[in-house]
Design a protein around this nucleic acid. Sequence first.
DNA 1: CATATGTCCTGAGAGC
DNA 2: TGCTCTCAGGACATAT
Length: 289
Amino acid sequence: MPELPEVETMRRRLLPILGTIVVSAARTPCFRKPISIRPRIDVLNRRIANRTIVAVDRLGKRVVLRFDCDHRLIFEPRMTGIVLAGTPPNREHLRFELKLRQRGNSRGVPPCPVLFWDRRGLGRIELVTPQQFEVMTGNGTGNGKLGPDAIAVSKEELYQRARTSRREVKVALLDQKLIAGIGNLYASEILHCAGVDPRSRCDRLTKRQWAGIHQAMQQVLESAIAHEGSTLSDGTYQKALDDPGSYQNQHRVYDRAELHCPTCGKASIRRIVQAQRSTFHCPRCQKKQ
DNA sequence: CATATGTCCTGAGAGC
DNA sequence: TGCTCTCAGGACATAT
């Protein structure tokens, strides 16, 4: 579930840990199969013990902690993972804990540990070197495992990256190598906002339409971040954070099949399937070309 | 039983 | 023909 706005919300809530020092990293007792952590937890522990957290970043749908040795710890929530500093919804699905202390001779309250809580356990945690991180981001060439972040990408860069693809635009927006951060929910919302048919082929959209998609992308994602993301019917996000997001009340098409389109007020929202996943759109507001 | 938010891998097929 | 792009399907694990 977590897409860019939800992960950005997690990131912002982690900011109080900036400048704290790692005491230890550990898997937590969890009755389930352990999640993937690379390198092995003892190696990881040796590399980051006593290191200071100098940045709390986000890269697409990942939370990235940077240490003073320039290694980065990357949390990848996938379907149901949550990164938080505080109280987890339960202990049963708690997978990982990063214990912290304040710099100097700390009196006062010790900082909350960073926790990775994941109901399904499909999430990943990985410590990467600066070199590995460059490979992941493509070192500015745009050819890494992840494309530029959906909030940061320029109108021109989006157009240049997408214009030659023969894929349907909705499917392309889900490709993290093209741009990072958009998932199934926001892809439908962005294309509805832009008035573009999700089945349009990328290479048949005009430059003007791509500009519209870029603008809708910024608008929808920023609004969703302001609402601290969406909580879905599954409720994972809600359970994990005391104060869950409210953007689900702003959805105009996602999971609203057969309801009236809030933009035109006339047509009803349709659900179609693309690349084996649901897409929601308004046939009146989103016409091809 | 089908469905659900994400990612990774493989193999087959399309088309430049 | 050859290469690249694209997509379908399965896997992961769990709840509604």
